[in-house]
């Protein structure tokens, strides 16, 4: 059984789909599995040490955000019993339950998507998309969008630098930061769009056909695995829903 881009894609897709239905206990128990997969299973290995660091960082942020969501809901959603008294505040179990559901969905959904992108070179994604029959135009658009998102943080940093180099106190406080961030958002989006158009032309000038047409047919060979993954997860979901 082969495990390639297609099976990886369907695995991540299945996980992301399950995130909407599974109870929070199951969702959360998937989290360590995802991290272990990222570290130990070769198809899910991150592209670089930097990518691995970012992956763990992001999981960290998500967890923090999750705890915040649970806390806020427990505090503000006054349903069910009071489970905890903190000074003048009451924490309700109904709120916590709701918060846990929201947070676990968010966590599983984002990390499933992240798991796919952290371990898949854009090149393989392009090949895969081409092989499953998407047209050259659509693949190009998806690629440009991925490229744009990939480069965005770097561009924002660069514009921040440029602003700072011209005397803007962008590092001073969060308010200033937000202000300069919003002031660059529109021109940044515009300039990136303009560039995307030129980049699309450049891709064609380099003979891009949507996917590597002749040289790499091997990516299709794991479609069986991919099918198996999607089928079994749908089956599991269905039986869970009936059982419930």
């Amino acid at each position: 059984m082969r495990f390639g881009t297609a099976s990886k894609f369907s695995f991540s897709f299945a996980l992301a789909l399950l995130a909407f239905f599974l109870p929070w206990q199951v969702s959360l128990s998937f989290m360590p599995v995802i991290v272990l997969l990222e570290i130990f299973l070769s198809p899910f290995r991150p592209l670089s040490a930097g990518a691995h660091k970012k992956f763990l960082q992001f999981i960290g942020y998500l967890t923090f955000l999750g705890v915040l969501i649970v806390g806020m809901n427990g505090l503000l959603l006054k349903s069910g019993e009071v489970v905890l008294r903190l000074l003048w505040f009451n924490i309700y179990d109904g709120g916590i339950e709701f918060g846990l559901n929201v947070a676990s969905r968010l966590l599983l959904l984002s990390s499933a998507i992240l798991l796919f992108f952290v371990s898949t070179p854009i090149k393989m994604l392009a090949d895969f998309l081409g092989h499953i029959g998407l047209s050259k135009k659509i693949v190009t658009i998806i690629l440009l969008a991925t490229f744009y998102l990939d480069q965005l943080p770097q561009r924002i940093t660069q514009v921040f630098w440029a602003q700072e180099a011209r005397g803007a106190p962008v590092r001073s406080n969060i308010l200033q930061r937000l202000k300069s961030f919003f002031s660059i958002l529109a021109p940044l989006t515009l300039s990136s769009l303009v560039e995307s158009v030129d980049r699309g032309m450049a891709l064609q000038l380099r003979g891009f056909q949507g996917y590597a047409s002749l040289s790499q047919p091997r990516d299709l060979q794991d479609l069986k695995t991919a099918f198996l993954i999607v089928f079994s997860s749908l089956l599991a979901l269905l039986s869970y829903l009936i059982w419930k």
């Binding site: 514009v159 440029a162 021109p187 940044l188």
Partner: peptide
Amino acid sequence: FQNPGDQIFSP
């Protein structure tokens, strides 16, 4: 900077 695109952000 060398590349103008890296530093222009105004309308």
